[in-house]
């Protein structure tokens, strides 16, 4: 609905990535140190726990022009604050349902559990999501939010 077909191979989507400090953020560091190549599509925002990510952050990011949002947290049972990632999963599931009602393609919003040692998984997830969004094309959300139709 909201996407225009865009097969432009040169276009790199903007993915805002909210990564938990203790796991996914460290994994992205590891991926860097290990010289794993992945698409230069993410703008990483480090948070102390995936439980800190308010749905408002996601909506703001979409409204300001993100083509996709990736949330990365610790695996179930591994959250430093015990239950933050479960809270994140519940919020995310609800947010997904809301985003679907709002006409946002579901590929644009993704949650992954990536531990500090999973640099490889981070690489795969970012590449895969980048590819999916490339197929969808640029997000229209910012434009719709900013342009009131009379």
């Amino acid at each position: 609905m909201q996407s225009t077909v865009n097969n432009n191979e040169n276009w790199t989507p903007k993915i805002v990535a909210f990564f938990c400090n203790w796991c996914t953020y460290t994994a992205s560091d590891l991926a860097g140190v290990s010289r794993l190549r992945y698409a230069p599509s993410t703008r990483v925002i480090r948070v102390m726990c995936s439980g800190r990510i308010d749905p408002e952050f996601v909506m703001e990011a979409f409204a300001k022009g993100a083509d996709g949002i990736l949330i990365g947290g610790c695996h179930p049972g591994d959250c430093h604050y015990a239950e933050g990632n479960y809270k994140c999963l519940r919020r995310f599931t609800l947010l997904q349902k809301y985003a679907d009602q709002m006409g946002i393609d579901k590929e644009r919003l993704r949650l992954e559990w990536i531990s500090a040692s999973e640099g490889k998984k981070l690489q795969e997830v970012v590449n895969d999501m980048t590819e999916q969004i490339r197929k969808l094309g640029p997000s229209k959300i910012k434009n719709v939010v900013e342009t009131i139709e009379r």
Binding site: K87, L89, L94
Partner: peptide, 17 residues
């Protein structure tokens, strides 16, 4: 955004993991 707050509130009220 009122809805965003409500989503957070609901996520805290639910118990499933």
């Amino acid at each position: 955004d009122p809805g965003a707050k409500m989503m957070s509130a609901i996520a805290s009220m639910l118990e499933g993991k």
